[in-house]
C-alpha cells in the first residue's frame, strides 16, 4: 500500500470518527441545548427557509427543523441499541450453540436461521406493528430477533471453523467445553468478524426503524424522528427542501459512518 492511499484512509477515518462523535454528542445533549421545543408550532411561520430564529427553517406545522433533526436520532438510537444488544446476544448464542451441538440440533438451528433470513423483515415488522401497535419494547424485540439471523450465521460459521482448530481440540482434551470454549477460545478470535456483523445490523436496524416511522408505524407524531420527519415533509419538498434534506443528511451520515467504521479493516 502506498503512502498517499494510506493518508487518504487516515483522512476518511478521521472524518468517520468526527461524524460518529457528532452524532453521539448530539444524541446525548440535545435536550440540554437552547433549542426551540421540538413540538412548538408557529402558525405564522410555516415551511420557511433559513432564518435567524430558525436556522434550518420550519416544517409544515411551523416547527423548528434544527431542533427536530438534533433530537431526531434519539428514538432510533435507543431502539437500535436495545435491538442490537438483543440481536447480538441471540445471534451469538444461537450460532455458537448450533456449531457446538452439531448433528441434528445444528441442522435444525441452521434451518431456523435460514428461515429468519428468508422472512421479509419489513413486511413482518409491518404485521407486528399493525397487531401490537407501536410499543417500542415489542418493536425492539422483533427487530432484535430478525436481525439476529445474520449474526447467528456468522457466529456459527466462525465457531465451526475455530472448533476444528488444534488449540480448541487441545482445550477439549484438557476439559474445556460449551460456554468455556465459546467465550474462551472461539469468540476472542472471531469477535472482530462478529462485531463487524453486529455493527452492520445496528445500521440496518436504524434504517428499518426509520422506514417503519416513514410508513407511519414506528415513532408516533409529534415525536421528532428522522424517518417520520421525512414522511411528514415529503409533500412539501418543493416548498422547503430543507425539511426533507436535513433528516436525510442526519440519517445517512450516521448509517454511512458506522458502516465505514466497521468496513475499514
Amino acid at each position: 500500500m502506498n503512502s498517499s492511499s494510506q493518508r487518504r484512509l487516515i483522512r476518511i477515518r478521521i472524518i468517520v470518527y468526527c461524524v460518529l462523535g457528532f452524532h453521539a454528542i448530539v444524541a446525548l445533549i440535545a435536550p440540554l441545548l437552547p433549542l426551540t421545543p421540538t413540538d412548538e408550532q408557529d402558525s405564522g411561520a410555516m415551511l420557511q427557509g433559513f432564518s435567524a430564529t430558525h436556522w434550518l427553517g420550519t416544517d409544515a406545522l411551523g416547527r423548528d427543523i434544527l431542533s427536530r433533526v438534533l433530537h431526531g436520532g434519539r428514538p432510533s438510537l435507543i431502539i437500535a441499541v436495545l435491538a442490537t444488544l438483543l440481536s447480538a446476544i441471540i445471534g451469538v448464542a444461537l450460532g455458537s450453540l448450533a456449531a457446538l451441538a452439531g448433528s441434528w440440533i445444528d441442522e435444525a438451528l441452521a434451518r431456523f436461521i435460514d428461515f429468519l433470513l428468508a422472512v421479509p423483515t419489513l413486511i413482518l415488522l409491518l404485521l407486528i406493528a399493525s397487531f401490537f401497535g407501536h410499543d417500542p419494547f415489542i418493536l425492539s424485540v422483533t427487530l432484535g430477533l430478525m436481525y439476529a439471523a445474520p449474526i447467528a450465521r456468522v457466529a456459527r460459521g466462525s465457531t465451526q471453523v475455530l472448533l476444528a482448530r488444534d488449540f480448541v481440540r487441545v482445550a477439549r482434551l484438557q476439559g474445556g467445553s460449551g460456554i468455556n470454549l465459546v467465550f474462551g477460545e472461539v469468540l476472542p478470535n472471531v469477535w472482530r468478524v462478529v462485531l463487524t456483523e453486529i455493527a452492520m445490523q445496528f445500521t440496518w436496524i436504524i434504517l428499518a426503524f426509520s422506514s417503519l416511522s416513514f410508513l407511519g408505524l414506528g415513532a408516533s407524531p409529534p415525536t421528532p424522528e428522522w424517518g417520520l420527519m421525512i414522511a411528514e415533509a415529503r409533500s412539501y419538498m418543493t416548498i422547503n427542501p430543507l425539511s426533507v434534506i436535513a433528516p436525510i443528511v442526519m440519517l445517512g451520515s450516521l448509517v454511512l459512518a458506522v458502516q465505514a467504521l466497521v468496513d475499514r479493516e
Partner: peptide
C-alpha cells in the same frame, strides 16, 4: 481426561 494428551502437527494452530 488428563491421562491422554495430544500435540498437533501445525505449530501455528496449536496455540490460541
Amino acid at each position: 481426561l488428563s491421562e491422554i494428551q495430544m500435540v498437533f502437527q501445525n505449530p501455528d494452530d496449536s496455540l490460541n
